[in-house]
């Protein structure tokens, strides 16, 4: 059964943890991973504990896109909302992130050098690269509204049998 989760938050960085929490839990619905550490069952289940590679990828990508919207689209002024629509299915997650801020010039993102060495370590501009690499698909449609679409699939070997 495919269901959609919708969340609307003010477009400011201080609301990012709330959105990340929702995205992380939605990712867990797909990966089937549990936030509880079996070796330490008393651990706070609300603590960040993102271990499964699928959850890691989805949360990492989402964090960077949220940052991008808050900083570039809303220019750190938070004068707008970020609409998040998450559709987890049996083996994939699709996240649509919408804002009404300034469109982002995705074509002008300097590609990260694949040849990183001590001298060439970047101090910025890594966000889009992280998101793109972590996801199976990422699209951006400038608006308004601007729409990011993030998609990650669970490898076939990891899809749980008999799970609804």
């Amino acid at each position: 059964m495919v269901a959609t989760i919708r969340l609307s938050v003010p477009g400011a960085l201080r609301y990012r943890p709330i959105a990340v929490r929702v995205v992380a839990e939605a990712a867990r619905l797909v990966s089937g991973s549990s936030p509880r550490d079996p070796k330490n069952p008393t651990i706070d289940p609300l603590a960040h504990d993102i271990r499964h590679p699928f959850d890691t990828a989805v949360v990492s990508a989402f964090m960077e896109i949220f940052n991008n919207i808050a900083i570039h689209a809303y220019q750190r002024k938070g004068a707008g909302t970020i609409e998040i629509e998450i559709t987890p299915s049996l083996d994939a997650i699709v996240i649509e992130v919408k804002d009404d801020g300034r469109p982002f010039d995705i074509d002008n993102v300097v590609p990260l050098s694949t040849d990183l060495d001590e001298e060439a370590l970047p101090e910025g501009g890594m966000g889009i690269h992280i998101a793109k690499t972590m996801l199976d698909e990422m699209t951006y449609e400038p608006g308004p509204p601007n729409i990011w679409r993030l998609c990650k699939r669970l490898p076939a070997t990891q899809v749980a049998v008999g799970r609804s």
Partner: peptide, 15 residues
Amino acid sequence: DLIDSSGVAALVKLY
């Protein structure tokens, strides 16, 4: 538990 590109940038700056 969690790091983003800003966090990485901070570590690179320290490095």
